[in-house]
Simulated scan of single mutants.
Amino acid sequence: MKSKLAAVAAILYFLFPMSLVFFILIFTPLMFVWDVESIRASGFAGPQSSIALIGISGLFIGISMLVPALRRMYRALPWLYPFISIFFINLIIANVALMILNTGYEISNETRHLLFTIFMIVFIIGARLAMSIYFRKKPVSSVEMR
């Protein structure tokens, strides 16, 4: 009975909170280009919602990793843990890059705008390169159950 309740809890957690996390993880990199374009077109800094997105996603991912009953979803779907790991890092990279660009657009100065756009591009390239090197040395595998 306890095993069946744990399975139901894992399924419900996967369907409700983790679907929000999937939505955030998939659409944030896609919306990143639109956000950058809107900031550059308007000439003003955009909203600072990046910490909230990282926090919400990190909270639900962390809960799913800490509670043994919820870790069943990673055993049932072996692709899920690598997907979440890589896309969560992409979420962090994209949101930090937006924070860099927003910082540059807080003051209306074309030289500052160009400089912070270059900082953002260099950060994205450097962070993605560092992520690639890290995952080459330590490949992401499915979660081992304890």
Rank of each mutant, 00 (worst) to 15 (best):
Lys2Met: 15
Ser3Val: 09
Ser3Thr: 08
Lys4Val: 08
Lys4Met: 12
Ala6Tyr: 14
Ala6Ile: 11
Ala10Phe: 05
Leu12Trp: 06
Tyr13Trp: 07
Phe14His: 10
Pro17Cys: 05
Phe23Thr: 04
Leu25Tyr: 01
Ile26Cys: 02
Phe27Glu: 13
Thr28Glu: 06
Pro29Cys: 09
Pro29Leu: 02
Pro29Tyr: 06
Leu30Lys: 13
Val33His: 01
Trp34Asn: 14
Asp35Met: 06
Glu37Met: 09
Ser38Gln: 15
Ile39Val: 15
Ala41Lys: 09
Ala41Tyr: 04
Gly43Asp: 05
Phe44Met: 11
Phe44Cys: 02
Phe44Tyr: 15
Ala45Thr: 00
Pro47Gln: 14
Ser49Phe: 07
Ser50Trp: 05
Ile51Cys: 00
Ile51Gly: 01
Gly55Phe: 09
Gly55Pro: 06
Gly55Val: 08
Gly55Met: 08
Gly58Asp: 10
Gly58Arg: 08
Ile61Phe: 09
Pro68Phe: 07
Arg71Trp: 00
Arg71Asp: 03
Arg72Met: 08
Tyr74Met: 05
Ala76Thr: 14
Leu77Ile: 13
Tyr81Glu: 04
Tyr81Trp: 12
Phe87Gly: 04
Phe87Tyr: 05
Ile89Ala: 15
Ile89Tyr: 01
Asn90Glu: 14
Asn90Lys: 04
Ile93His: 00
Ala94Thr: 07
Ala94Leu: 07
Asn95Ser: 10
Asn95Cys: 01
Asn95Thr: 08
Val96Trp: 00
Val96Ala: 01
Ala97Ile: 05
Leu98His: 03
Thr103Trp: 15
Tyr105Trp: 04
Asn109Gly: 05
Glu110Tyr: 06
Leu114Arg: 09
Phe116Ala: 00
Phe116Ser: 00
Phe119Gln: 09
Met120Ile: 03
Ile121Gln: 07
Ile124Ala: 03
Gly126Tyr: 00
Ala130Arg: 10
Met131Ala: 10
Ser132Phe: 14
Ile133Leu: 13
Ile133Lys: 12
Arg136Ala: 11
Lys137Met: 15
Pro139Met: 03
Ser141Trp: 10
Ser141Gln: 13
Glu144His: 14
Met145Asn: 12
Arg146Ile: 05
